[in-house]
Simulated scan of single mutants.
Amino acid sequence: MISRLFSRGPDTRIFFATDIHGSETCWKKFLNSGKHYEAKVIVLGGDMTGKALVPIVEAGKGNWHATLLENRRDFTTEDEVKEFEDSVRRRGYYPFRTTPDEMAELESDEKLRDKYFHEEMLGTVERWMRMAEEKLAGTGIECYVSPGNDDQFEVDEIIANARGVHLAEGRVVEFGNFQMVSTGWANRTPWDTYREEDEPDLKKRLDEMTSQVTAPPEQTVYNFHCPPHQSGLDDAPEITADMRPKDAGRSTMPVGSTAVREAIEEGQPALALHGHIHEARGNTRIGRTLCINPGSSYEQGQLLGAVVDLDGGKKVKRFVLTSG
């Protein structure tokens, strides 16, 4: 356990995770992370919502069927359906029950599919916020969530209205003697996600946010979802023109943001927390700044993270990458 590994009690210990992409298992583990790692602050750094619906179609006489990852499953009992729904949620998808007629309508109507996805996604975020309120009430643990480039903008309002969870996007927040500024915006991606923009615009956004920080660099944390360019924390599989991994995923290239790198080089915060590139788990330094990307294995229900001790409002004292 981390508290045994770190023999001296820190002034402020934070736990950071990111890119859970709708995995309910990972969300539950995140809510438990503060108690487990004895962290005063827990931070989720972006891309919290899932990417797809999984219809479970009624087949009559109490039977159902569904297809997940091109594998068809047939169910004859309610317990089997519920077990399948739980497995879908663990992988970061949204299960929903439907009829053959409704399914035929969904298959022929893209707008209707988008509507159903939108409702399921937002409903899940609302339920997660209620879970957080119940789990964190009375613990004294501060929870900060910053949506990522894959998260729709309606998510922000739900988080902002939640009790026990703080919306971090675009704000400077304080814990201990530190200030943290956060954003889920990224540079351009091949997938045209919700929160991405050209590098000059991203740099302007970052400058506007970091200009609000009043703490000295050694007491500052940048929680920027996108990692800095050519940092080793941004090496992603190269893709072909038809959006397939090049050389079976063995060929990689840096895809991080030059704007994020410039912001770190200029501001030199004590700590920079990143995600976005699931495969690029690790840490590096840019000048005096410790940069961390804990990576993501959300589809396996595994919560990757980082525990960081901040020493007396002066520096990062120690850190360790975690898996649970």
Rank of each mutant, 00 (worst) to 15 (best):
I2P: 00
P10A: 11
R13E: 01
A17C: 14
G22R: 00
W27S: 07
W27Q: 04
K28R: 13
N32I: 00
H36M: 13
Y37L: 01
I42V: 15
G46Q: 05
D47V: 05
T49L: 12
A52Q: 04
L53K: 10
I56N: 00
N63W: 06
N63A: 14
T67I: 13
L69K: 14
R72E: 14
T77M: 07
D79A: 14
E80F: 04
R90V: 13
R91N: 04
G92K: 01
G92W: 06
Y94W: 03
P95K: 00
F96P: 03
R97T: 14
T98L: 06
P100D: 06
A104R: 14
L106W: 05
L106I: 13
K111P: 00
L112Y: 14
R113S: 03
Y116I: 15
F117H: 13
L122E: 06
E133F: 12
E134H: 09
K135G: 02
T139S: 15
T139I: 10
E142D: 12
Y144A: 13
N149H: 03
F153W: 09
D156E: 13
I158L: 14
A160Q: 12
N161I: 03
G164Q: 10
A168T: 05
R171M: 09
R171D: 11
F178W: 12
F178V: 05
S182V: 01
W185N: 11
P190N: 10
D192H: 07
Y194A: 11
E197Y: 06
E197R: 15
L202Y: 04
Q212D: 12
A215S: 14
P216G: 07
P216R: 08
P217E: 05
T220M: 14
T220E: 00
T220K: 04
N223W: 01
H229M: 12
Q230S: 15
Q230W: 04
Q230P: 00
S231C: 03
I239R: 15
D242L: 08
P245H: 07
D247C: 05
G249L: 05
S257F: 00
A259L: 04
V260Y: 00
L273V: 12
H276E: 09
H278K: 06
E279H: 10
A280M: 10
R285A: 08
I286Y: 02
L290C: 12
I292E: 01
G301R: 03
L304M: 07
A306Q: 07
V307T: 14
V308Q: 02
D309Q: 13
L310E: 03
L310R: 12
K314Y: 07
R318E: 14
L321D: 03
L321I: 07
S323E: 15
